[in-house]
Simulated scan of single mutants.
Amino acid sequence: MPVAYNDDMDKRLIQLGAAVIDTEAHAIAALRTRINGNFAAACKYMLACEGRIVILGMGKSGHIGGKIAATLASTGTPAFFVHPGEASHGDLGMITEKDVVLALSNSGETEEICTILPLIKRLGVPLIALTGQPRSTLGKVADIHIDISVEKEACPLGLAPTASSTATLAMGDALAIALLESRGFTAEDFARSHPGGRLGRRLLLRISDIMHKGEEIPAIPENVLLSSALLEMTRKGLGMTAVVNAQNHAVGIFTDGDLRRALDQGIDVHITPIAKIMTANCKTLGPDLLAAEALQIMQRHRINALLVVDTEQRLIGALNMHDLLRAGVL
Rank of each mutant, 00 (worst) to 15 (best):
A187C: 09
V150C: 09
S149W: 10
T137H: 03
E153A: 12
A160V: 14
D173N: 07
V150W: 06
S165Q: 05
V141R: 14
I144Q: 10
H145C: 08
G184R: 00
D173I: 09
S149L: 06
A174V: 04
L180Y: 01
T162M: 08
G184C: 00
R183Y: 01
T137M: 10
A178R: 06
E181W: 04
A160C: 08
A160D: 11
T186D: 02
I177L: 15
T137L: 13
A163Y: 00
D189R: 09
D147M: 13
G172C: 05
G139Y: 02
T186I: 02
G184V: 00
K152C: 14
P156V: 04
I148L: 10
A170M: 13
S164Y: 05
E151N: 14
A142P: 03
S149D: 11
T162V: 05
D147K: 12
M171L: 06
S165E: 02
M171Y: 03
S149R: 13
F185I: 03
A163G: 01
S164E: 01
I144E: 12
A176M: 03
V150D: 07
D173E: 09
L175G: 01
A174K: 08
A167H: 06
S149A: 15
L138G: 11
P161M: 00
A163W: 00
P156L: 02
E153Q: 05
S182E: 03
L179R: 01
P161E: 04
G139R: 03
